[in-house]
Amino acid sequence: MSKKAFRPDVDAPTWRGGHSPYDIIKEGTIALVVVGVLTVLLSVFFGSPDEAAVTVKKWANANPIDFATTAANELNGTSLTAGYGPPYNHAAIGQKLGPLSLAKWAGVRIPINPVSDFVIKPLESMPSQPVLQQNLAMWSSASSSTQSGWVTDYVKAVPKMTFVNGHVVVPTTNAGPVSVLVDNLTQMARSGALDQALVTGGGYYTTDYTKPLLFLADGTYLAGLAANQHLTGTQWGMMNETGQYPGQAWLWLYTFWYQIRPYSASTNADVLVWGTMMALSAVLLFLPLIPGLRAIPRKVKVYRLIWREHYQQ
């Protein structure tokens, strides 16, 4: 070894003491059997959760008003998705970490246009329905200022929306085709056809549920179900599981930051929490290189318990 001074938090003394018998294969086998038995016992006793997925059909039948209101917000550009920004659209610049606009720099890579993707294109896929076709034609031939005039008029009347005899009724005066579009989309959703229209947007095969999930998340129905199960962000939901099952308890620290200031009050909470966790992860990773921190175990002396037989001698 070199003549440098011994650094107790970096160097380890060379072991000159005795050795005891150690059967590594036997130890591994015992561990596998014990963990295996424990896994089987826990599974037999507790099982695992499997709450069925929510469909747009289920949502529109359980709460047609919420669905129709969400559809109107999509047209109006006031839904969460419509105002999201990157990676879905240019409506916002996304969150900022100090001066860094990470989301904006990454760009719009998964383009979503709520008006056409969630409302117009699905309606256009419906088989020939003369009234709907007329109203779709009216919509697509109108200028964007005319369209937004209709939508504004419709959205103003949304608080008075009712659901009567299977139809969405909104007392509008100058909403153009919007009433027919929203009502037809609601019918489509209640029949289950919208679920298909949203996922098959890319072709015959699909494994991508970005659009129906974004649409579902824009309503209040999914969030309401989640709040019942204590799964929302302010309920430490990230680490929770449906029912009484333990969840991703190892996310406790990530979840914790969302509950306290300045994170809980920030519009950049997500990126701040991520930045914090990245920094803390780096500290954990590079702990052996950080003077002070790497001295903690030597100073708190828990090691004396672990190696007590050694120190007794």
Partner: peptide, 22 residues
């Protein structure tokens, strides 16, 4: 299932905020 729907729609905001969602 419902769990994956909820977790993914929540987690997207975290990862999108870092730019990783792209």
């Amino acid at each position: 299932n419902f769990d994956s729907q909820w977790i993914s729609t929540q987690a997207k905001d975290g990862i999108n905020a870092t730019g990783g969602g792209s």
